[in-house]
C-alpha cells in the first residue's frame, strides 16, 4: 500500500464514519498534504428563505467540521506514518479516538449565499493535550471569506 493510498483512505474513513458530515453533504478534496472542505449547496441548508441565505448554524457547523477533520486527518496521518498506528486503524470499526471540541468562536463576516461553500483550516498549534485551529470559509473568492472561526480541541490520549 502506498503512502498516498493511505492518505486518501485515512481521509475517506474519517469523513465517511461521521453521520453528521453525510447529513450536511460535506466533501473533502485533497491536494497533496492539504485538504479543502466543500459544502455543495442544497435547499435544506437555507436559514432565511426570503434573502435567501444559508443558515448561520450551517455555517458554524461547516467550519467546525472542517477544523476537526483537518486536525484529525493530520494527526492520524502522522501517527500512521510514524508507525504509532497500524494500517488497521484506518478501517471501519477501528476508531482511533478523535479530538474533542473545547470551545468554538465563529465570526460572521458577510451573509452566506445560496451557493457552494469552501473552507480551509490551519492548525495554529497542536500540542500533546491541546490544539488551536483557525478556519476560513468562502464562496466566490478565496480572499473574501464569509465566515471564520477559531476552535480549541482536547487531543485524544496518545495511542
Amino acid at each position: 500500500m502506498t503512502a498516498y493510498q493511505n492518505r486518501d483512505e485515512a481521509l475517506a474513513w474519517l469523513v465517511g464514519a461521521v453521520p453528521y458530515i453525510r447529513f450536511l453533504g460535506i466533501r473533502f478534496d485533497r491536494q497533496g498534504d492539504e485538504i479543502t472542505a466543500h459544502l455543495p449547496f442544497q435547499p435544506m441548508l437555507i436559514g432565511n428563505p426570503v434573502i435567501p441565505a444559508l443558515h448561520g448554524g450551517v455555517t458554524a457547523a461547516f467550519l467546525e467540521v472542517a477544523a476537526i477533520i483537518e486536525l484529525s486527518w493530520t494527526t492520524l496521518w502522522e501517527d500512521l506514518s510514524a508507525g504509532r498506528l497500524g494500517p488497521d486503524a484506518v478501517t471501519p470499526g477501528h476508531l482511533p479516538p478523535l479530538p474533542k471540541t473545547i470551545d468554538f468562536t465563529v465570526d460572521y463576516l458577510r451573509s452566506g449565499q445560496a451557493r457552494d461553500c469552501f473552507a480551509k483550516a490551519r492548525i495554529n498549534r497542536s500540542g500533546r493535550r491541546y490544539a488551536s485551529v483557525h478556519v476560513d470559509a468562502w464562496q466566490d473568492a478565496r480572499d473574501k471569506p464569509f465566515a471564520s472561526a477559531v476552535v480549541h480541541f482536547l487531543m485524544p490520549e496518545a495511542p
Binding site: P19, Y20, I21, G47, G57, V58, A60, A61, L95, F104
Partner: peptide, 23 residues
C-alpha cells in the same frame, strides 16, 4: 441519528448543537 458526530457512541455532533444554539 443523522446528526451523530461519533458513531462509536452515538453522541450528537457539536455542529448540530451549534446550529440549534444559533437559531
Amino acid at each position: 441519528p443523522r446528526l451523530v458526530g461519533d458513531p462509536a457512541t452515538g453522541v450528537l455532533h457539536g455542529g448540530a448543537i451549534s446550529a440549534l444554539m444559533d437559531t
